[in-house]
Amino acid sequence: MNPIVELIDVWKSYNGTQALRGLNLEVYRGEIFGLLGPNGAGKTTTLKIIVGLLKMDKGVVKVNGVDISEEPYEYKRLIGYVPETVSLPEYLTVEEFLIYSGKIREVSNEQIRERIGYFIRLFELEGKRKSLILSLSRGMRQKVAIASALIHDPDLLILDEPFIGIDPMGQHILKDLFNERIKDGKTVFVSTHMLDTAERLCNRVAIIHRGQNVASGDLRNLQQLSKSGENATLEEVFLKLTEEAEMQVVEGEKKKEDSLTY
């Protein structure tokens, strides 16, 4: 099966600081894929490169088999994206913003109307339909951003820390929504810090550390890989794998220093 997202040896640096160091990743259709990693591991950078908000220094990113460096626009029609820090046009009402999101993705008027109604009901935003985004709470803004990312019914939904700021009921609705989508053969690609949520929600995860893919697969694969035992939680696996990766980096740096000293 061809992956819907494929990253091959992707490198990215910011002012000399290496954020991604030859990252390899594969995400398949019909799965909820979780990107896990400690702060500064390169999760947000990875997602931003996939959606075209950042340019990589080196490597290949393919979405639905298309190299995004060669075809940087058309593939975006397949994608719905919600960033970690959601910034929305505060001068628009909720309804106006969703109309705007639909229009720029060339969704038909009829579908826009229908989907706005559906998401407003789903996220319990009926009373806020005509309110300015300025007046919404953080959680409500997050819901509106997710609705806008789904207005064109994309094949691939990419979300950076989607559960932050959302109440437990909202989180439950989201999880149900994601599960519904993968039943239809769509893909959900999330980056998250919430390991217990990832464990229950994701079919497969990748753990990245210092811009590299330390391990990927389902929980059982990761348990075997980390030799943590069958009953190990994702959190235990995550801690073990990231600690090992950190040790390798430290040892590598020590060897480098030693060779320079001699």
Binding site: Y73, S87, P89, Y100, R105
Partner: peptide, 17 residues
């Protein structure tokens, strides 16, 4: 001031630049 933070919306939408 107003739109820079919101540019991610059109830029990830595939809208004709």
């Amino acid at each position: 001031s107003s739109e820079f933070e919101n540019l991610w919306i059109p830029l990830t939408s595939g809208v004709n630049i």
